[in-house]
Structures are given as C-alpha cells and as structure tokens.
Design a protein around this nucleic acid. Structure first.
Lengths: 152, 152
DNA sequence: CTACAACTTCAAGTTCACTTGAAGTCAAGG
DNA sequence: CCTTGACTTCAAGTGAACTTGAAGTTGTAG
C-alpha cells in the first residue's frame, strides 16, 4: 500500500495540514506512525477526507460526520451499501435544504410583486404575531425558522 | 409613535433581549432612551429585526446585513425602491445557493446510480487531482467549493 | 554531514453570533 | 413604601472549526 505524508494528503485533499491533525484528534481519520513518529496515511484517507468535506457542504457538523463515518472502514474501500446509504441520506438532506431555500425565495418573490411597502397584507407579514403567542425565548430556531416581516 | 421596551421587541421579534443589545452594539438597530436610561424602540425596529433574521437565513453575516441596512432609514418606512432592491438582491443570492445545492445533489444522485464503489470513473471523482495542481493552501473555499471524491 | 523543509506536540488565538453572570438601577402593582 | 421583575453595563464565556506560534525532531537532497 502507498502511504501519504500529512503534507501530501493535505495537498491532494485541498485542506490544511492543521485541519487534518484536527480531524484526527476528532477521530474522523486515523494514521499510522513512522519510527520517527510522523503520520502516514493510507490512500483511502484521501477519499475519507473528501467525504468529510462533502458532508460539510451538505450541512453536517463534524460531530454528525463522525457518526456517519463510524460505519465506514478507516482502511480499505467501503462497500457499495455503505456508500449508497450515506449518499442517499445526504441527498435527502440536500433536498430538504433546497426546499427550504425555495420556500424562502418564493416568499421574497411574492413580496416583490405585492409591493410590501406598508407590509399590511404580505405573505411574509402574517407569521409575525402568530409567533408572539408561542411563549418566551427564541422560537425561530434554525431550520424551524420562518421569515416574518411584521407591520410597521 | 408607540415605543417598545427591549423585552416587548424581543418577544415580538422572536429573539433574545441580549441579541437585541448585541445588534445595537453593532449598529444594526438603534434606540432612544428613557430618563432612566432604558431603551425604547420605535415599532419600525420590529420590521428591521425581521429583515436582519431574514437576511441571515439567506446566508448574510451580520456585517453584510449592516451594509445592506445602512441604506434603510432607522425610523419610518423604507421606500418601495429600498425594499425592492434588498429583496431582489437577496432573492438572487438564494437562487445562487439553491443552484449550488442542486449541483451537489445531482452529483450525489449520479454517484448513487454509477455505483461509485471503486470510484474510478465517477463524476465526483474527476475534480480531485485537478485541484492538486492549483498550488498550496486551502483552495476549496466556501462557495467556491466543489466536491471531490478521489480514487482509492 | 549539513542544511533545510517538513514534520511533531501543545497551548493559545481567531471569528461569528450570541449568551451568561455580576452588580446594580428602574418601573409598576399592592 | 416595598417588592419584584424588567431593565442597565461590562466582562467573560460558548462552541464550531480551525489556525497560529513556539520549541523541538525527522527526513532527504546535495
């Protein structure tokens, strides 16, 4: 098997060496050591790092990525089932995100059309005081959040 | 004009009072003070806070929001032109984001179909070593980033 | 053998968007 | 008048995802 130094892996994966050490400290990747204590990564780690970056693009935190990757072998090639499972779940997540952004965009588009100047009857006006009834504290949590532009 | 206390504004806008003070420290919103030094916000601030939250949803940082909002009056109603300009630019931004996520999803979908087990000829395989030629440092910056799953 | 780039660890620093805590002041009902 | 909850400031803390720096070691080309 061919081994990569941390510098080579960083170069090929397009991340900083410090990021790779950080990932390793988080258990996302693993390495062997030379007699002089330097890291050597199997080539499979290159794919693993790419998966990590892809997952981040999809909106996963490193913690979530760690959980997802725990089911994959650190060495060697993941099975077709492994890969299908991951890519399907990430695609679903993407679908959800896209839908959310589209909803937000549609609201904005609507608002441009309705000339929301006074904001009395706009689609993004309504949710406002509905929200006020839900109790104390931040009730627009990320992902749950809906835009509300209240009346003046 | 009716004035809101920070607690009332927080409740109606769905954010914490600490967040409102933070926004004020950043110049995103402004307040008058009572004789006893307590903040009083004009109702227009409610809309302003909602705009801030909406912009965050669209992916703007508070700094960017500040720039965008500088063109709006702190008091009173923004003009139709103000609002159109903002909502159009935010909608464009959303369109871009949606397009990016869709591209990523399509790559994933493709990959599920092609059974990327060996990752020798996959669509998300190719970009990998192209990237390696681009020089040192993180070259996949956010927004610029493309997924790459290199060969094993 | 020597120079020098690349590596090592560990602690601390960075940015963003807030939140929390301490210590104290104000406003409103009874 | 008194209590209580809402408010004030300011400093420090949080967490995510890394980066930077210091001080020292290893690997390799010449």
């Amino acid at each position: 098997m061919e081994w990569l130094t941390i510098g080579e892996l960083a170069e090929r994966a397009g991340v900083a060496t410090s990021a790779l050490r950080f990932y390793e400290s988080r258990g996302l990747i693993a390495s062997e050591r030379t007699s002089g204590n330097q890291r050597r990564y199997p080539r499979a780690t290159l794919r693993r790092v790419s998966l990590i970056r892809a997952a981040q693009q999809v909106g996963l935190s490193l913690g979530e990525v760690a959980v997802a990757l725990e089911t994959l072998p650190h060495q060697g090639t993941p099975t077709k089932r492994d890969w299908e499972r991951l890519s399907r779940s990430w695609r679903n997540r993407l679908d959800g995100q896209i839908a959310e952004l589209q909803a937000l965009r549609d609201e904005l588009t609507n608002c441009i059309g309705c000339g929301c100047l006074s904001l009395k009857s706009c689609a993004i006006f309504n949710p406002a005081d509905t929200a006020a009834a839900k109790g104390t504290g931040p009730r627009y949590l990320l992902g749950d959040m809906r835009v509300a532009i209240p009346a003046d």
